[in-house]
Amino acid sequence: MLLGQTMTGPIKRSAYYREIVRHMHDIGIGSLIIVALISLFIGAVTAVQFAYQLGGTLIPRYYIGYIVRDMTIIELAPTITCLVLAGKVGSNIASEIGGMRQKEHIDAMEIMGVNTASYLILPRIIAGLTMIPLLVFMAAFISIIGAFIASVPVGLFSADEYIKGLGMFYDPYNVFMMFVKSVVFAFIVITIPAYQGYFVKGGSIELGKASTAAVVFSNIFILLSDYFIAVVLTA
């Protein structure tokens, strides 16, 4: 029902533009550093651990580049990035909307005649669906660089081996899969916290609980949908 109300078009589109831009900034620019940092280390750790696991085997070292690339694109970049965003962006959305509910801001807007579900949630959905896939794309790119930085200078494998691995068995369908996941996860990261915040009742304890529930449910739904997308897109 809330989603239906959210998707009811705005009364005046121009009033939404500012909100969309503000949320794009908050979600996108506001999450750049944390996403970059996590991606860098994910790539680094993945490369170091695969180098360790492949040590003493007959598998060529350049396979590490191939494994890092596909693991990052298919799974780690979209899933880990969105799990992190569920914590950062999701809790922020739940507490911001919940705070507005508690301080009667939502009632004030309702009385003015504003479709609050649409005004508060739709710009966030649009901003999330735009910025989160871009963040995921950036995360994948940084992870691959992170793997290079962590491994090549210390001699785990050579730059040529890594680059050769990166170019092996490349399938653009995997990138498509990454974007499908990031769009679905983005929708979860925005809508579940928005729901939790919009219907919060009581005081600061309930707001805290709503914020926690937003993160927990978002994470569960991200992992569930990750599995179903994997099953459907690889069938």
């Binding site: 301080k103 009385i111 005649g113």
Partner: peptide, 20 residues
């Protein structure tokens, strides 16, 4: 129709409810 009518309504809240 409710939204249209509400445009003719003003409300002062106990805590003012100004957007921070």
């Amino acid at each position: 129709e409710t939204r249209e009518l509400r445009m003719e309504v003003g409300m002062l809240f106990q805590g003012s409810a100004l957007f921070d």
